[in-house]
């Protein structure tokens, strides 16, 4: 089912994403701070989201083992 390097990486990324976007890891960003004037928590959420997307793109578009 999950043979192949790409599939295994995707599975790992899935679990990583699920962990990052839920309690308790999510709560780590919940501080009253700003980065570049932007509130930390919403910013962090979007950044983590973007990173997830970027990693998915990297795994899938590399063409490795993705037949």
């Amino acid at each position: 089912m999950f043979q192949g390097l790409a599939a295994q990486r995707l599975l790992a990324l899935f679990f990583a994403g699920a962990l990052l976007l839920n309690f308790p890891l999510l709560a780590l960003w919940d501080r009253d701070a700003t980065v570049l004037g932007l509130p930390l928590f919403p910013l962090a959420l979007f950044v983590v989201w973007a990173v997830l997307i970027g990693l998915t793109a990297w795994i899938v578009e590399r063409g490795e083992d993705v037949e």
């Binding site: 790409a6 995707l10 599975l11 990324l13 976007l21």
Partner: peptide, 9 residues
């Protein structure tokens, strides 16, 4: 987003 990570499979 998470679902699409596994979409390829």
């Amino acid at each position: 987003t998470l679902a699409m990570v596994l979409a390829w499979v």
